[in-house]
Design a protein around this nucleic acid. Structure first.
Length: 469
RNA sequence: GCCCCCAUCGUCUAGCCCGGUCCAGGACACCGCCCUUUCAAGGCGGAGAGCGCGGGUUCGAAUCCCGCUGGGGGUGCCA
């Protein structure tokens, strides 16, 4: 069975790049009817927090990712200790008594001489007696993995292809810190092996780590998984997408009014496409059945907020079921300070969903449907003060007073007024819009009248007439 | 510095493995027109890459080979 995983560290909000990695890993597992594991990598006790972990899970759920198993590395420290002991016993790892200061000194010297730094291996040659003595003196120590000399580790990456790295490029690396906590390169192997992960799908920034991990797999006698390294996501300036590019977390986009289905879909478009390359709008179900690692591009992609925005618009106007759109929209309406019952919102959105691209923008545009009072803009006031406006409004008010109010009827009346007063259609509509919305642009007046309660329409007309009369 | 990865319209990409059907297809953004009560949305059309550069191989290369350049990533007792 195929088993893949997503292994984030809870040190911040879910980053778009990580979200995409999670999505690809998820799609891969689902496509093969396999298992998808979520594993929180919090071995760095300094930087990991429970708050970030909670938000991470929430964002992942919001995106629509469900996992079959959940693990937290800080719950598994005892387990890692056992495997670390094994490595020491088999001679694959050894205690290193060098202090952080000493190592920094080593590093600085290497830099000064312009030679690439790698750990000197000072403690590598300590004999048993020396180790015992140092331990007895209570000297703290880390555990380092003994990297064999001159070995070239080769693996076939599912996305990048053939990769060969000479392990001489790095020195013996730490697998257990002097405070007893294990490090990433070590636990990732123990966990992936024990959890039966068959496909390690992650960002390409992990390529340099892969040979280290392969060495550990071998030392522990674990079978190797397949590796698939995804290209990174870039910002407009073609450097790795980061905070300085603006909004880069899933949370940011959620708060700006993007719907999860659109973000999910868009993230997939960054580095993946069908061989035909034409279709771009996919449901999650389609993605599950169509996604193949072999169709993942090996070159990095620049994140385009513009295109995400467009796709979000597609979901809002034509893909999401109306009920769900209402559900998604309600919180935005509320936090903007408006209250309206669900049925009303549903009626509004049914007629206006094709006119905005984010939920936040929708609230802004749909204000006339929800606001208690109309606030006139500078431009709207000008329109109201134009010579025909007062006449248009009072005539309209008279005609509309009795009977049902509907978009159709408003259109008919507008046409009558236009003829009778010898005006252009524009003049009539502009006056109506200014009085009913307080703006010179935005939602259609007929659409507004179709849904807005009649007494509010009348009320707004009266207010405008008073103002100009 | 050293190691690794990448390179098709401004951007996301198709095509590359199996060379000709590609004077390179689609999408976003852009421009124009149409629709129209405004702004959007929508419809139609347009401009935009000769495939990073230089060598090969071949009757023929975006597609195969080599070199270069450029960009990105890594180089932690972070993940």
């Amino acid at each position: 069975m195929v088993v893949s995983r997503f292994a984030p560290s809870p040190t911040g909000y879910l980053h778009l790049g990580n979200a995409r990695t999670a999505i690809f890993s998820y799609l891969f597992a689902r496509h093969h009817g396999g298992k998808f594991i979520l594993r929180v990598e919090d071995t760095d006790r300094e930087r990991s927090t429970k708050e970030f972990e909670d938000m991470l899970l929430e964002d992942l759920r919001w995106l629509g990712l469900e996992w079959d198993e959940f693990y937290r590395q800080s719950d598994r420290f005892d387990l890692y200790r056992d495997y670390a002991d094994k490595l020491v016993e088999s001679g694959h790892a050894y205690p290193c008594f060098c202090s952080v200061e000493e190592l920094e000194e080593e590093k600085k010297r290497a830099e000064e001489r312009g030679i690439p730094y790698r750990y000197s291996g000072k403690c590598r040659v300590l004999n048993k007696a020396e180790v015992k003595e140092l331990k007895k003196r209570g000297k703290g120590y880390a555990l380092r993995f003994r990297v064999p000399d001159g070995r070239v580790v080769v693996f076939e990456d599912l996305i990048k292809g053939h990769i060969a790295i000479n392990v001489d490029d790095f020195g013996d690396f730490v697998i257990v810190r002097s405070d007893g906590t294990p490090t990433y390169n070590f636990v990732v192997v123990v966990d992936d092996a024990l959890m039966g992960v068959t496909h390690v799908i992650r960002g390409e920034d992990h390529i340099p780590n892969t040979p280290k991990q392969i060495l550990i797999y071998e030392a522990l006698g674990f079978p190797l998984p397949r590796f698939a390294h995804l290209p990174v996501i870039l910002g407009e300036d073609r450097s790795k997408l980061s905070k300085r590019h603006g909004a880069v977390s899933v949370r940011n986009y959620r708060e700006e009014g993007y719907v999860p289905e659109a973000l999910f879909n868009y993230l997939c478009l960054l580095g993946w496409s069908l061989p035909e390359g034409e279709k771009e709008v996919f449901s999650k179900e389609e993605l599950v059945s169509l996604f193949k690692l072999e169709d993942v591009n090996s070159s990095p992609a620049v994140f385009s907020k513009e295109k995400l925005r467009w796709l979000n618009g597609v979901y809002i106007r034509e893909i999401l079921p109306l009920e769900q759109l209402v559900e998604d929209f309600l919180p935005f309406l509320q936090s903007a300070g408006y209250s309206a019952d669900r049925e009303y919102v549903k009626k509004v959105l049914q007629k206006t969903r094709d006119s905005f691209e984010t939920l936040k923008e929708g609230v802004e545009r749909l204000k006339p449907f929800f606001a208690e009072e109309v606030i006139y803009s500078e431009e709207a006031l000008q329109v109201l003060e134009s010579e025909s406006s007062a006449m248009v409004l009072s005539t309209f008010l008279q005609r509309v007073r009795d009977g049902e109010l509907s978009g159709e009827r408003v259109k008919t009346i507008a046409k009558e007024i236009q003829k009778e007063l010898g005006l252009k259609a524009k003049d009539v509509w502009h006056a109506l819009r200014a009085s009913l919305t307080g703006e010179t642009e935005g939602v259609g007046v007929d659409v507004l009248c179709d849904v807005l309660p009649k007494e509010k329409v009348l009320q707004r007309l009266v207010k405008a007439i008073k103002l100009v009369g």
